[in-house]
């Protein structure tokens, strides 16, 4: 099977600034993978090189086997990769329902529809007609998750979903990630919150200075040792 996302020795840049120094990894269909590391090591740049926001100088990034050449922001989503960006990026002048519809991909049918998503997030159903920004941070995260699922992606990319959320809401995020994975959707989780990583991923890679410096599987892993790896 072709990997949902595959990076081969990717070097990525913002203008002249060299951020990723040869990143390689692959996410197979249905896999749950976490990318961890401190702030500023290039985790979000991995996402941004899928979006064309960071420029890929050398190496190849593939989505569903297709090499990305000068991707536009919408390329990844059209190839089945839904991204929940850092900061959620709720469109403020649209209602909650409109924000959800924005994520729909008319060509791709699957389990997720407006109904199933509103059933999963009752709060969004209650307030479907209010502006997206009328929600709290945690509710906005749910909206961003629901919006990403609307496209029935083959892989869901979550960039720092726990950022700024209360622990109880982080638990909700973990539950939803489990439900998503149960549908056979692959997950790439970019996180610093290790308890979320432990619950939502099977495999991880640790990033430092624009490289993946170690990889391993969650099973039987000593979290304390991992903590030491990424702690400041």
């Amino acid at each position: 099977m072709t990997a949902c996302i595959r990076f081969d020795d990717v070097h990525a840049y913002y203008g002249g600034a060299h951020i990723l120094h040869g990143v390689s990894f692959a996410i197979e269909p249905g896999e749950r993978v976490a990318l961890i590391g401190r702030n500023g090591v290039g985790k979000t740049t991995v996402v941004n090189s899928l979006l064309g926001i960071a420029r890929i100088g050398s190496g190849v990034a593939r989505i569903a086997g297709r090499a990305l050449k000068n991707p536009r922001t919408f390329t990844a989503a059209q190839l089945g990769i839904a991204i929940v960006p850092q900061g959620r990026m709720i469109v403020p002048n649209l209602t909650i329902e409109e924000n959800l519809i924005l994520g729909a991909a008319p060509g791709r049918k699957g389990y997720w529809t407006l109904e199933t998503i509103l059933a999963l997030f009752p709060i969004l159903k209650e307030r479907a007609r209010s502006p997206g920004t009328a929600l709290s941070g945690g509710q906005q995260q749910m909206l961003a998750l629901g919006r990403a699922l609307m496209g029935n992606p083959t892989c869901l990319v979550l960039d720092e979903p726990s950022e700024g959320l209360a622990p109880v809401i982080v638990d909700d995020v973990a539950d939803i990630a489990a439900k998503v994975a149960a549908q056979g959707t692959a997950i790439l989780l970019i996180e610093q919150n290790l308890s979320l990583v432990r619950r939502a991923a099977d495999r991880f890679g640790v990033m430092a200075k624009g490289r993946i410096v170690s990889e391993g599987s969650m099973a039987g892993l000593d979290i304390a040792a991992l903590h030491a790896h990424i702690a400041i």
Binding site: T73, E98, I101, G103
Partner: peptide
Amino acid sequence: RIGLHARAAATDIVATGIQGVNTD
């Protein structure tokens, strides 16, 4: 739907693109 896309893109063209809307 295209009107929705246009309104979204007018507010945040990057966020709209990430959702798979062909903002070009």
